[in-house]
């Protein structure tokens, strides 16, 4: 479907400040993982962060524990959001976070502990930029990933 003019997302949106708050919390945890370096403690904390990304990939950013903290502790103290946002962009970002931290946890569990702070550092850059300047991973990565896929035969109609 080609959209013109005012494109709308599907369904009800979420408060755009929620995913950004969550990204800030996640970035702080990832910074601690970087501090802990290639240790068991770092691996455990990275696994906690990865579990959060798994929740976010399945249920959307509002379904993570960071989303719960935002809804119950932060949002009641803020002015109502002037607009709601589509839930798909933050959910895509959660998936990217899961991929990066999941690789770190997997390598860490198989004994390559140096991968733990490296994965945490990569995920930190994305999460911190999301929280501070509003970087949108779906904007930067989705089309690149889509282009990497080979051209489907017969014009690629869906």
């Amino acid at each position: 479907m080609t959209r013109t003019g005012t494109a709308q997302g599907t369904g009800l949106g979420i408060d755009p400040r929620g995913p950004r708050f969550g990204a800030g919390v996640t970035a702080a945890l990832l910074a601690v993982v970087v501090l802990l370096g290639g240790s068991t403690a770092g691996l455990v904390l990275l696994a906690v962060v990865a579990a959060g990304f798994l929740l976010g990939t399945i249920r959307g950013a509002e379904g993570t524990w960071q989303g719960w903290v935002f809804r119950t502790l932060v949002r009641p103290r803020l002015a109502p959001s002037h607009e709601l946002e589509d839930r798909r962009p933050p959910r895509f970002a959660q998936g990217v976070g899961l991929l990066v931290t999941g690789v770190g946890v997997g390598l860490g569990l198989s004994g390559v502990l140096v991968a733990v702070p490296i994965a945490a550092a990569v995920a930190f850059v994305a999460a911190a930029l999301n929280a501070v300047v509003g970087l949108c991973l779906g904007c930067e990565l989705y089309l690149l990933l889509r282009r990497l896929r080979p051209r489907s035969a017969g014009g690629g109609a869906q």
């Binding site: 959209r3 494109a7 946002e85 949108c136 904007c139 989705y142």
Partner: peptide, 13 residues
């Protein structure tokens, strides 16, 4: 634009 891109909505507006 893409569905996973929130700034696309703001730009369209």
């Amino acid at each position: 634009s893409a569905a996973v891109c929130a700034p696309c909505r703001a730009t369209a507006r």
